[in-house]
């Protein structure tokens, strides 16, 4: 779904169109649910966060600013933050051991992000993400999806704090080097 029909649907939502909201739900419920599940690790919590996200969209569709980024990125950021808020409310738990095993090799599993919403650059970055050393990728995932700080990650992985800091820095720097090699290094052309 391209940005133009999304803009139109958001305007319809502001006018009270439930059908417009449901169209966006049909298109984006899966990626929202996937992000929520990645953070929370169970279907019940992920379902409730997915519900929350679309209710927020119903209530605050006017808050999306197309000049600040693409709709999918905005929506998935809300999903992640909502999931992390929920994670913080319940007792902090260690991610299951095998979640690292699974996510340490995302390139082994074909992902299906929104087709028109994701650029070739993003696809390249996802590929590079899969090729990062496991330590770097795990540290990035633990911080981003499990709301862990440097110290939390160091304790969880039983590694020195400085090592964890290096993993995150080097992993992100590698992604940035790919990012800067591309002529258009913005997710969307509208951003300055």
């Amino acid at each position: 779904m391209s940005e133009t029909p999304i803009k139109s649907l958001l305007q319809q939502i502001q006018s009270g169109s439930e059908e417009a909201l449901l169209q966006l739900h049909d298109e984006f419920a899966t990626p929202v649910y996937s992000v929520a599940y990645r953070v929370l690790g169970n279907s019940q919590d992920a379902e409730e966060v997915t519900q929350d996200v679309f209710l927020k969209l119903w209530d605050k569709a006017q808050s999306f600013d197309p000049d600040k980024g693409k709709f999918t990125s905005w929506l998935l950021t809300i999903a992640r933050r909502s999931a992390i808020d929920r994670l913080r409310k319940r007792e902090r738990r260690e991610p299951p051991d095998n979640s690292i095993s699974m996510d340490a090799a995302p390139y082994l599993w074909e992902t299906t992000p929104g087709g028109e919403e994701i650029s070739d650059l993003q696809r390249s970055l996802i590929g590079v993400l899969g090729e990062l050393p496991d330590d770097q990728r795990n540290a990035i995932y633990l911080s981003y999806f499990h709301d862990m700080s440097h110290s939390d990650i160091a304790a969880h992985l039983n590694k020195p704090l400085g090592t964890v800091k290096s993993h995150i820095r080097l992993g992100m720097q590698k992604l940035r080097s790919i990012w800067n090699q591309q002529p258009d290094t913005r997710i969307d052309s509208e951003r300055r």
């Binding site: 929202v32 990125s73 994701i118 993400l129």
Partner: peptide, 27 residues
Amino acid sequence: EYEDIAAILPFAVPQRPAPAHLRADLI
């Protein structure tokens, strides 16, 4: 720049189909 890079991470998540009942629940 790094926030733009971080924004791609949700796209790297393996996709899990949203349960069908969520639509009816939303309605």
